[in-house]
C-alpha cells in the first residue's frame, strides 16, 4: 500500500474541524463517524505495525512501538496547544464554550501525555537500557504532566465558576511555555531522544502504519474532547442554574 493512502482519512476530521465554527452542533451527530474512524485508524495502524512491518536494522522489533508512542505524544501536545488557544479565547472574549473546551483539552492532553510518556519509558528500556533518564525531553514531558495535573487540581479546588474560568485561563496562557519547551527540548539542549521525526527520517516501511495510527488517534482525541466537553457544560449548567427547590421554571437553563 502506498504511504499516501491513509492521508485520505485525514479529510474527515479536518473537514469537520473547519466546519465546526459555522455549525456548532455538528459534532452532536457526526461524532460517531469520528469514533468509527478512530477505531478503524488505530486498528489498521496497530495491525500493520505489529504484523506487516519487518523488523528494523538497529531497533529490531521494538520499532513497532513508534506507531503508538509518537501519535499519542503528538496529540497530547496538540491538545495542550488547544488548551492555550481556548484560554486565550476566554481571556479576550469571556466565552463559556472556551472555558469548557480548555478544561476538556487539558484533561485529554494529560491522559494522552501520560500514556505516551509511559510508552516512551517502555521503549527506552530495550534501546537505552533504562526506563527513565533525566534527559531534557523526558524531564520536560514529566514537568508538563505535573503542570496540567496542577491545572486540573486548581479547577477542582475553586468553586466559583467565574473565578475558576479566569484563573485557569490565566494558567493555560502562562503554561504555553511548557509544551514549547517539550517540543524544542531536543533541539535546544543536547538530548538522548532523537529530534522530531519527519517522513524522510522515519523507518520507511513504518510510515503507512504510523499515519493510520496517527489519524486514528487524532479522531479519538476529538471524540474524547467532545465527550468531556459535554460533561463540562453539564456541570456548568448545574452550577449556574438555581436549584429546583427555588422554583426554577422547567428547562430554564
Amino acid at each position: 500500500m502506498p504511504s499516501w493512502v491513509p492521508l485520505v482519512l485525514l479529510l474527515v476530521p479536518v473537514g469537520i474541524c473547519l466546519a465546526l465554527p459555522f455549525k456548532r452542533d455538528l459534532l452532536d451527530k457526526v461524532w460517531l463517524v469520528l469514533a468509527a474512524e478512530a477505531v478503524f485508524g488505530i486498528g489498521v495502524g496497530t495491525y500493520l505495525a505489529l504484523f506487516s512491518v519487518p523488523p528494523e536494522r538497529d531497533m529490531g522489533e521494538v520499532v513497532r512501538i513508534f506507531a503508538a508512542h509518537v501519535p499519542q505524544v503528538q496529540n497530547a501536545l496538540l491538545a495542550v496547544v488547544l488548551n492555550f488557544g481556548c484560554s486565550l479565547w476566554f481571556l479576550i472574549r469571556k466565552s463559556w464554550v472556551a472555558d469548557s473546551l480548555a478544561e476538556s483539552s487539558a484533561e485529554v492532553g494529560l491522559y494522552l501525555g501520560a500514556v505516551g510518556t509511559a510508552l516512551g519509558a517502555i521503549w527506552a528500556k530495550p534501546t537505552w537500557g533504562v526506563y527513565w533518564t533525566w534527559d531534557p525531553r523526558l524531564t520536560s514531558a514529566a514537568v508538563m504532566l505535573i503542570y496540567y495535573a496542577g491545572y486540573l487540581a486548581l479547577r477542582r479546588f475553586t468553586d466559583n465558576p467565574d473565578t475558576r474560568a479566569t484563573w485557569s485561563a490565566a494558567l493555560g496562557t502562562f503554561g504555553i511555555v511548557i509544551p514549547v519547551t517539550v517540543y524544542k527540548s531536543v533541539v535546544w539542549m543536547k538530548s538522548m531522544h532523537q529530534v522530531q521525526s519527519s517522513p524522510e527520517t522515519v523507518y520507511p516501511q513504518l510510515v503507512t502504519a504510523f499515519r493510520f495510527s496517527a489519524i486514528g488517534f487524532l479522531c479519538l482525541m476529538i471524540v474524547f474532547i467532545y465527550q468531556r466537553y459535554r460533561i463540562a457544560q453539564e456541570q456548568l449548567k448545574r452550577e449556574v442554574a438555581p436549584p429546583e427547590a427555588l422554583g426554577a421554571p422547567q428547562g430554564a437553563a
Binding site: V143, A149, G150, A153, F157, F174
Partner: peptide
C-alpha cells in the same frame, strides 16, 4: 485564594520554573 493553597503554589510554580 484557592483552597489547599499550600500544595497548589509549588505544584503550579515549580514546573514553569524548571528552565
Amino acid at each position: 485564594n484557592a483552597r489547599a493553597r499550600d500544595v497548589l503554589l509549588p505544584i503550579l510554580l515549580f514546573p514553569v520554573l524548571v528552565p
